[in-house]
């Protein structure tokens, strides 16, 4: 034991100034030293564990991207967005799917933003803290975790059949809006709650009404957070397949939706169809489609960061 101690005097001396204090019995100092060493080993081990958990996600993503790029690079051509689906892989593209996805996002974004932020403002600023309000809160939080296929069934029953919108772009967009709404409400609520009390108080002190306070003091301050939530929710919606298959988004569409009631398809559905084909050329096309989808997602996330910083600077 003595020997081990003398083997690592540097570590010992550096770490614990306490142990060096005179008058401490030899045995106690020895015990102290071992405890310190042990704690430091645990510390180091945990450091490695946490690093490993971080790297697990990063490495999996990297492996995924490398694999997809290797498969899809050769097919990642302009034809991918200019051509319609075809039985021949060499001529197949996903133009109708890309346009369908873009249109869908353009419809979902304003709908989800208005409804989501409106609900969040009501819940945070107007609603009381009563039992009903708590029940609504619980509901929204639960809805945020409901599997997406359930929204598909809801969309099929309500928008496709009941509202008789058919299997149209607008039915898909409304279903997707429902899907992202809870996520946006929760994010917007968090953002509004994070606005300092003093901002509201200052506004009221100047004689502002509730709406003036909300619209000029609270919302601008909460806006970056709300935007981040909206765009992250939209990124989720871009990759959703199940609810849209449920409401009958199609696979083979060779025209672009010209009005809201036209049939449509989206990128994940086209990718899924290509993946399940027998011919390896279609699997390469699917990989190229995934690359395009990933780029779209990155662009959206980038937009979230950019918008957040833009608005943060203004306040």
């Amino acid at each position: 034991m003595e020997q081990r101690l003398s083997e690592s005097p540097a570590v010992y001396g550096k770490s614990s100034g306490l142990a060096g204090a005179g008058g401490v019995p030899e045995t106690l100092r020895d015990g102290e030293h071992r405890r310190v060493l042990r704690r430091r080993r645990i510390d180091w081990a945990l450091h490695l564990v946490f690093l490993a958990s971080t790297m697990a996600g990063v490495l999996v993503l990297a492996a995924l991207i490398v694999d997809i790029v290797m498969d899809g690079w050769a097919r990642f051509t302009p034809e991918l967005v200019t051509n319609h689906p075809s039985r021949r892989a060499s001529q197949a593209g996903m133009r109708s799917a890309v346009v369908g996805t873009v249109y869908m996002m353009l419809l979902v974004a304003p709908l989800a933003f208005i409804l989501g932020v409106g609900a969040a403002v009501y819940l945070e600023e107007y609603a009381g803290r009563g039992r009903l309000s708590r029940l609504v809160q619980l509901n929204i939080r639960t809805l945020a975790g409901v599997p997406s296929i359930v929204y598909g069934i809801l969309g099929l029953a309500v928008f496709v059949r009941w509202f008789a919108l058919g299997r149209s772009l607008i039915a898909g967009a409304l279903t997707m809006t429902l899907l992202v709404l809870p996520v946006i409400i929760v994010a917007a609520q968090e953002a509004i709650r994070a606005v300092p009390r003093s901002r509201r108080d200052a506004s009221y002190a100047l004689g502002a009404t509730k709406w003036q306070t909300v619209s000029r003091a609270v919302l601008p301050s909460a806006f970056p957070g709300i935007l981040t939530g909206v765009i992250l929710a939209m990124s989720r919606a871009v990759g959703e397949t199940a609810p849209l298959i449920m409401i009958g988004a199609l696979t083979y569409v060779t025209f672009l939706p010209g009005k809201l009631t036209d049939p449509f398809t989206v990128m994940p559905i086209q990718i899924y169809n290509w993946i399940s084909r027998a011919q390896p050329e279609f699997h390469e096309l699917a990989a190229a489609g995934i690359m395009l989808l990933l780029i779209l997602l990155l662009l959206m996330n980038f937009a979230a960061v950019a918008l957040r910083n833009k608005f943060r600077g203004r306040i």
Binding site: E79, V81, T82, N83, H84, P85, S86, R88, Q91, A92, G93, R95, V98, V99, V102, T254, F255, L256
Partner: peptide, 11 residues
């Protein structure tokens, strides 16, 4: 995507 009409795989 918007140009060139909506017909055929040729695009």
């Amino acid at each position: 995507c918007g140009t060139g009409g909506g017909n055929g795989g040729g695009g």
